[in-house]
Each structure stands twice: as C-alpha cells, then as structure tokens.
C-alpha cells in the first residue's frame, strides 16, 4: 500500500541484500512456511463461509429479515449484512429496503412537531407468525364462526397462543389493569383497538401504545426515543422503528428489551493470554 521504499531503489536494495535475505530465509524458512499454510487455510475457511441470510433486527424472530444480494448494483451491496455469530443485522446496504410510508399520524399540537413527511416503516404484518397463517390474516380463524367472538373483555384462561402469553390470567402488561382485548379488537382480530374503539393496523402500533404511554410517545415523535436510520438531517428520509419492533408488548414488564447474544469482543492485546484481570474484584461488592 504505502510505499515503504522508492521503487527506483527496489532493485538495488534487492541486489544488495540478496545474500542477507538468503541467510534469513534459511533460518526463518520453517516458520514462514507454517505461517503461510495457516494463512491459506484461514483464507479457505473465509471463502467457504457463506454469508448469513436469515437475520433479525431487534427482536429475535419478530423482526426477521432476509439478505438479498446486489440491492445497490453501483457498489454491489446486499440489502443487509448480518453477524455470522448471532445473525443480528449489522449493516444496511439500503436502509429503505422493504419499507412503506408510515401512514397518517395524528397531529399533536404541542411542541412535538413530528417529522413524518418522509417517514417510512417496515410493515409489521408480514412479520407476524399468526397473521400470515391464512389468507385473511387472523380473521381466517377469528371470523365469528370458527372461533366465536368473545362477549366481554374479562380475563379468562386461554389454551391457544401460549407461545405469546404463557398464562393469560397473569398477563403482566398493565399489571392486571388491562387484558388482551383491550388492545386486540374482539370483532376484527386483524386490527388493534384503543379504549375509544378506534382500530389501528398492526403496522402502526405507535398510535395505540401512545394513547397510554404518552411521555415515551412524545419522545419518539421528537426523534429522541427509538431508532431511525437513513438521513440524519431534519426533514430527510428516515426509516422509523415502531414500538413493537423493539418491545414485546406481552412481556414488556419482565424485559423492556429482551436480552440477545453479544457479538465477539476484540482479541486481547498481543502477549495477553486472556482478560481475566478485568474481572478481579468484580464479585466482591
């Protein structure tokens, strides 16, 4: 890369040091060969490894995204690059891949001038397991005949969907004050519903969540809370993360953000065998 030696002198240098170099090569030949072979092996390993294609963004399983090659042909970028260790998305070739406009947002007349003109989101509906089990979404089963509509919102034990809420009588969100049907519409299961009976798409959970969590919602509208990628400038095109892309509303009382696996640490500096010294005295308090 960087010229270590001016090229005119390369030949002279080579000639001058040929003898010395020969001697060095004899001594160091064995080691060099070993190093070379390991380097080759490493390279082979690297080329064998295929890039991870099934990835997730923030929540494991709920924010799945697939790698597609050559989304930006100019640079040969894929849409995302993922970690081979955790399959978490590390890098976006195209931050707006697979996004739709955020849709209408209610006006809030105080200081929260939400910058929604160029806001896009990744739709939630294609990423929901149960929503995609039939042609009509949740209403494939919850159509009033196959599964009858419940008469009231009173908590009762539910045998279905225990992977989402293990025990429906102990739903932690709201600490017993609310239950499934306070957010999920009883008669139109493809939609969310708020306390005034307004129905919202699963793609716009913020309109429902914001009706109770106003403080966080205002921060989110301002751009302080939550994640946005794309342009940094005010008014630029940004992809917004909506509430349920990071938070699982059903278990949010246990974990605000469900723990995920960490990525690899840097290797310790040369000569340091491990980093145990860092943990000395960690358990004393």
């Amino acid at each position: 890369m960087k010229p270590q030696i001016a090229p005119t002198t390369v030949i002279i240098v080579l000639a001058l040091f040929a003898v010395v170099a020969g001697g060095l090569a004899l001594v160091g030949g064995l080691d060099t060969q070993k190093a070379k072979s390991t380097a080759v092996e490493e390279q082979a390993k690297a080329t064998d490894a295929q890039p991870v294609t099934d990835c997730f963004e923030s929540r494991v399983a709920y924010t799945a995204v697939t790698r597609t090659e050559n989304i930006v042909p100019q640079y040969g970028y894929p849409n995302i690059k993922c970690s081979p260790k955790t399959s978490g998305v590390l890098w976006y070739g195209d931050p707006f891949d697979g996004t739709i406009p955020m849709g209408e947002m209610p006006e809030v007349t105080d200081a929260t001038r939400g910058d929604f003109v160029n806001a896009v989101v990744k739709p939630r509906e294609p990423r929901l397991t149960y929503f995609n089990m039939g042609p009509d979404g949740c209403a494939t089963c919850h159509n009033g005949t196959m599964v009858v509509f419940p008469k009231d919102k009173k908590p009762r034990l539910i045998t279905m969907h225990q992977d989402i809420v293990a025990n429906s009588l102990q739903l932690q969100h709201g600490r017993g004050a609310i239950w499934c049907l306070d957010c999920h519409s009883a008669t139109n299961r493809n939609k969310l519903v708020d306390r005034q009976g307004r129905e919202f798409s699963f793609n716009q959970p913020q309109r429902l969540c914001g009706s109770c969590h106003g403080e966080v919602y205002i921060d989110w509208r301002e751009g302080i809370h939550g994640k946005r990628i794309g342009a940094w400038a005010t008014g630029g095109k940004k992809r917004w993360w909506v509430c349920t892309e990071c938070h699982n509303p059903h278990t949010v009382q246990t974990n605000r953000f469900n723990p995920i696996n960490a990525e690899l640490p840097p290797p310790p500096p040369k000569g340091m065998k491990n980093a145990d010294h860092e943990r000395v005295g960690q358990n004393e308090h």
Binding site: K85, P259, I260, N261, A262, E263, L264, P265, P266, P268, A275, E278, R279, Q282
Partner: peptide
C-alpha cells in the same frame, strides 16, 4: 470490562 465474553446474553 472491555473484553467481556460474547457467550453471555
């Protein structure tokens, strides 16, 4: 700790 393991959640 700057070298905490990647195996932990």
């Amino acid at each position: 700790q700057s070298y905490y393991s990647a195996d932990e959640m």
